[in-house]
Design a protein around this nucleic acid. Structure first.
Lengths: 246, 246
DNA sequence: GCGAATTTGTGCGTATGTATT
DNA sequence: TAATACATACGCACAAATTCG
């Protein structure tokens, strides 16, 4: 399938060969054609079947490796990173416990509604006037202690296959992305301070007015589309928030 | 100088050729031998003078480019990124104003002492029992408004050439790194909430007990050594803290 | 334990495309 | 236009890690 574009003299193709191949690989990963449990074809086999050189395949895989989509092991092969796995979807949580491990806890209570997007929701998720969203209000707990009151918003048009029960998973965005052949890429999180309202104070067992960490996060797909908007009020207690600056 | 290690059959050298060359380039950058205002030698010239192939030089430069140490422009050349420039040292500040631009403000007041490191300072900077540190207590302002009360700690043994006046620059770590032929690499910042003490409240013109964002940051060199420990109490007002998750 | 086969990693060399001066 | 410099693409040989008979 790529052969046609290859034969049209690469210097006139608008995109470079290794970029086309990279995108082709991304498709194979997102669609699930490349499974996470077994190695993909060897670099030489891929080069043969694509009709290009091994070096070009390697360059395409280099970018995928840098993006965290694959891992390569000398002597073994190249493996797809399982983005719906706990370890990988956890990277979007900057909350850590004493030993430095990331945590996201469990969903204690969860209310989901489908509604027309508000102005803010349209803005943060890049939606149109009449677009609808899943809007989940959740309380999360760690070691039996309630520590987070959050609102998770996901476009219904983008993830029609999501159902209410999915929102009981703290990593619902990763689950939904997997189900809709999308790949989570990066996120931007605004951090500030907010005082606990009556509802939040009762939910978390704290006093009204107590200061909480306000986490306002937008998750993006690997192709740049917006995946999830989340606003969380977080009581740190024995946890801390850590930002990596690179 | 690299020739010797090259001729000792690369397969028996403990480190790969492109890694040796990368480290060699890092040295040239840190020492200032490669200046920021003019392009470095071309890839082919570098390959010739090092006695290796162009591909190996390119691979070494690839890693430097990924680390943000150089930028390459087709048809022009490869240029050193000026790490003491405001734009680059600003990347360690996650505070932003409305338009999304990073800010670090100005130093309004600054008290510097040289003292034996405390237990915490030894821990965060990886120092020994009798090591001494510069410890600066500063107040920072933006648009005439005081917003941050911070303590900056830097190892005196690591940066003997620093003087008191340097700490009046908000980016003193970058200045010191440049002067001592070091290169800032990454940072880890813990974010939590703290109540304003009497001293801090007076310094920032707020009420005692007001909640402030507590920013606890360790900066690292490109070689992994610890460069600076900073604890800041921050009143957000018209700013916000943003963490990029990638 | 050993060697063969497989797979990724390193290193070299060349030709050509493309942007800049 | 010509020269220069980085970028892409190809191919080859060998090193190093893994797996399996």
């Amino acid at each position: 399938m790529l052969k046609s574009s290859i034969k049209t003299k690469p210097q006139f193709a608008n995109r470079h060969l290794y970029e086309q191949i990279r995108d082709h690989f991304v498709e194979l990963i997102a669609s699930g054609e490349w499974q996470a449990d077994r190695p993909i074809d060897s670099e030489t086999d891929l080069a043969d079947s694509l009709g290009c050189s091994v070096g070009t395949v390697r360059k395409a895989l280099d970018t995928l490796e840098a993006e965290g989509l694959v891992t390569r092991k000398q002597g073994r092969g190249t493996f797809i990173a399982d983005h719906s796995s706990e370890a990988l979807s956890m990277r979007f949580s900057n909350l850590r416990i004493g030993n430095g491990q990331r945590v996201c806890g469990l969903v204690a209570t969860c209310d989901v509604v489908v509604d027309v997007a508000t102005v803010d929701e349209r803005r943060w998720l890049g939606l149109g006037e009449q677009d609808r969203v899943f809007r989940a209000t959740r309380i999360r707990e760690l070691h039996g202690r309630r520590f987070m009151y959050e609102t998770v918003v996901i476009s219904q048009r983008q993830m029609p296959l999501l159902v209410e029960a999915d929102f009981s998973n703290p990593r619902v965005a990763a689950i939904g992305a997997r189900r809709h052949n999308m790949l989570a890429g990066k996120a931007e999180e605004r951090v500030s301070i907010a005082a606990a309202s009556g509802i939040v104070a009762e939910a978390l067992g704290i006093k009204v007015g107590d200061p909480l960490l306000l986490l306002d996060r937008v998750m993006f797909c690997i192709n740049g589309k917006r995946l999830e908007w989340r606003v969380a009020l977080c009581s740190l207690h024995d946890k801390y928030y850590m930002a990596d600056i690179i």
